[in-house]
Amino acid sequence: NFEEIYDVEKFIRTLDGIIEVARDHPALVSSEKLPVVRVPNRVCETYIATKVEPLFRIKGNLRLEIYYPSLIMTKGKETQYVDPYSCLAMFEILQLQPRLQQVVNSMIWRLKTLNQKSNGQYIAVHLRVEMLEKKCKGNEARRRKRCYNAQEIGEFLKKVDFQTNTTIYLTESRWQTSLDALRDIYPNTYTKEDIMSAKEKANLLSSGSSELEKVIDFHICSESDVFVPAVSCLFYATVIGKRIASGKTQILVPAQMTSPSRRDYISPYISEKNHLAYSCFC
């Protein structure tokens, strides 16, 4: 539910004068099953004019579903210059509703204060066990390794000289034994379950909403001092866009290299400045 996650008032206020937003479905629309049109992300006006508008003129009401045909968010010739409305949609209109923002803020505060030796800093690692099991089968056979498990992430962080007292946040919701290898190297490693209050866990983790958990992860990863993706995926690319917007460009991508220099592992999105977000933030 949109309003359970995002600030509806902020959404409507930001779009005022640009597009009309109805708070409620008209009665006729609510009672009928709307035709669904799947639209790929980042389409041009010609696509809308030829694929969507004709059906809209016939049906009068449509439900649009946006999907991502590619997990890559690099700038292309068609996105070298992004119109201001697209930038507004990507970086301005969505703000967490106050209650959820308070939860995120409290989790970040705990990460910064749990370990007195961390100087108020933490690393966010996007690593979910289920994701590794589903998306990374056959990864070993590829020429370029794209998935890293908990032990490999720990070895990578150690290689680039992060001290063992570093605070680490994992996007996994609850601790699993397959993560033990990382905590053996970095004892101050936490999941949501570790840094949420009992009330927050009851209200959020017990709800079973994976989308809600992803939203929390997105904001905690966007605010971390360093972000490390265990898998190159859409979440990784989306977090980078948010971090570019806020100037937090310390994103390290594990690779099978021996270099101990963090500079050699900076995400290509950053080092080559080819992320779509750079079209909005020159």
Rank of each mutant, 00 (worst) to 15 (best):
Y122E: 02
I240Y: 00
C87W: 05
N139L: 10
F227C: 01
E9Q: 14
E155L: 12
I270T: 03
I195F: 07
L88G: 04
S206E: 13
C280F: 03
K158G: 03
V39I: 15
P54T: 09
N165H: 11
Q256S: 09
A181C: 06
N203F: 07
T113M: 10
I195Q: 05
C233Q: 07
V239W: 01
C136N: 05
Y265C: 01
N119P: 05
S210L: 13
R13Q: 15
T258W: 10
R110W: 12
L111V: 03
H219Q: 11
T189F: 03
L55W: 07
G154F: 00
H25P: 01
W175L: 00
L64E: 05
F156Q: 04
K135T: 12
R99G: 09
L252S: 01
F91M: 07
A181R: 15
E3R: 12
Y269E: 00
I240V: 15
Y67A: 10
Y269T: 00
R144I: 13
K117D: 14
S70C: 09
S279W: 02
L276Q: 00
N274Y: 00
M90P: 01
I240G: 00
S86P: 00
W175K: 05
S267N: 05
P40H: 07
R42Q: 12
S207K: 07
I48L: 14
T74C: 05
K137C: 10
I12A: 11
A27W: 11
E223L: 06
S232P: 03
M90N: 07
C87H: 03
L94R: 12
L64P: 07
D184E: 12
E140G: 02
S30V: 03
F227G: 00
V37R: 13
V125F: 00
R146Y: 03
S30T: 14
L212C: 07
R263F: 13
F2R: 13
E193N: 12
E45K: 15
G60L: 10
L276G: 02
S30F: 08
Q176C: 10
M107W: 09
S70G: 08
K273R: 15
K51N: 13
Y169Q: 05
L71K: 08
I251L: 00
Y190P: 01
V231K: 02
I270F: 02
V37L: 13
R144K: 13
T249G: 05
I93V: 15
F56Q: 11
N274L: 02
S224V: 06
A245T: 06
